[in-house]
C-alpha cells in the first residue's frame, strides 16, 4: 500500500504524530497504518556470532529498559528511561524516534555513538544505512516515499557506555543537552554523540580521538587533564542555538560537563577498571 499511495500515514507509538493531529497541525488524508501492531517490528534478536543486536522499529522504550536488552546496550536503556513518562515509554518506539528525527530524540545519540545502522523496507526491497546518514537535519531523514523503518542494528560493544541528559525538571522533560559516550575496549576507541546541540545528532571526532589516545586501556583510567580536555573538545564540537528552552551558551557548556562526567565514570582518573555505574 505504501508503494501505491502517497497519502498513507504511518503510526508507530503515536506519541509524536498524535500531538500534531491533536493540535490540528496534521490531519491524515488517507489510510493510517498502525505499524506497531506488526509482530515482526516489535521483536528483537541478539546475534552472538556477529556481536550485534537488532531491534525492531516498534520496540517500545519500556521494552528497551528490560534487563535482557539493557545488559547488551546499557546506554540505550538509560536513554529510554529518560523518555517522557511511563505512559510515553509504553507507547513510544525506537523507530518513531528515528522517524521524527528530532535533535532532542533521546534514543538517537546512543544510536549515533554506537554507529548503528537503520534498515528501510519498501516494495522494491530493503536497504541499510548508517544512522548518521539517515539523520539529515532537524526532523529530516533520508527516508524515501514508500519506505518503512523496519529495524535498527547495533554492535554489542565490550566496554563502558552511558547516556546523560539535561532538562529543567527531574522527570518527563525534553533534553536541552544530551550526551552518549561509548568506550570500545576491543577497538580501543571512544565514541561520543550529542543531542539537542545541533540540527541533528553530532559526533565529536576530535574529542573521541583525543581521549582514545590518552586512556590507559589496561587500567581504564585517564588523567584528569585529559578528561578536562575531552570535555572542552566536546563543547567545541557542539553547534547549539538559543531558544525558549535554553541558551546556546548553556547547552555548549552542559554537553562538555556531561561528556567529562560520563568519561570519568568509564575511566576513573586514578582508580581500577571502570565498571558500569
Amino acid at each position: 500500500m505504501l508503494a501505491e499511495r502517497d497519502d498513507v500515514t504511518l503510526l508507530a507509538g503515536g506519541t509524536d504524530a498524535m500531538v500534531e493531529i491533536n493540535d490540528g497541525h496534521r490531519r491524515p488524508q488517507g489510510p493510517v497504518v498502525a505499524v506497531n501492531r506488526i509482530p515482526d517490528l516489535r521483536s528483537w534478536r541478539h546475534d552472538r556470532a556477529a556481536g550485534t543486536l537488532t531491534i525492531g522499529a516498534c520496540v517500545t522504550y519500556t521494552e528497551l529498559m528490560d534487563p535482557a536488552i539493557a545488559t547488551l546496550v546499557p546506554a540505550l536503556a538509560e536513554a529510554s528511561r529518560t523518555v517522557g513518562s511511563p505512559q510515553i515509554r509504553n507507547a513510544g518506539t525506537l523507530g518513531g524516534n528515528l522517524g521524527t528525527c528530532s535533535p532532542a530524540g533521546d534514543g538517537l545519540p546512543v544510536l549515533a555513538a554506537l554507529d548503528a545502522t537503520v534498515t528501510l523496507a519498501s516494495r522494491s526491497g530493503t536497504r541499510t544505512m548508517p544512522v548518521t546518514e539517515f539523520m539529515v537535519g532537524v526532523k529530516r531523514t533520508a527516508i524515501e516515499p514508500g519506505e518503512l523503518i523496519t529495524e535498527v542494528t547495533l554492535p554489542v560493544v565490550d566496554g563502558w557506555q552511558g547516556y546523560a541528559k539535561v532538562g529543567v525538571r527531574n522527570a518527563m522533560v525534553i533534553a536541552i543537552a544530551s550526551t552518549c559516550v561509548v568506550f570500545d575496549r576491543a577497538a580501543q576507541t571512544v565514541r561520543v554523540a550529542l543531542g539537542s546541540v545541533g540540527p541533528t545528532i553530532l559526533r565529536c571526532p576530535d574529542a573521541e580521538a583525543h581521549l582514545a589516545s590518552h586512556v590507559d586501556w589496561n587500567t581504564m583510567s585517564a588523567a584528569a587533564d585529559d578528561l578536562d580536555r575531552f570535555g572542552t573538545l566536546v563543547s567545541d564540537a557542539s553547534r547549539p542555538i538559543t531558544d525558549h528552552r535554553s541558551s546556546a551558551e548553556y547547552r555548549r557548556h552542559a554537553v562538555g560537563v556531561l561528556a567529562r562526567r560520563l568519561a570519568q565514570r568509564a575511566a576513573t582518573p586514578a582508580g581500577p577498571p571502570g565498571a558500569p555505574a
Partner: peptide, 10 residues
C-alpha cells in the same frame, strides 16, 4: 540526585 533519570551527576 539533581537531573534524575538523566544521570547527569554523581
Amino acid at each position: 540526585l539533581p537531573g534524575g533519570a538523566g544521570r547527569t551527576a554523581d
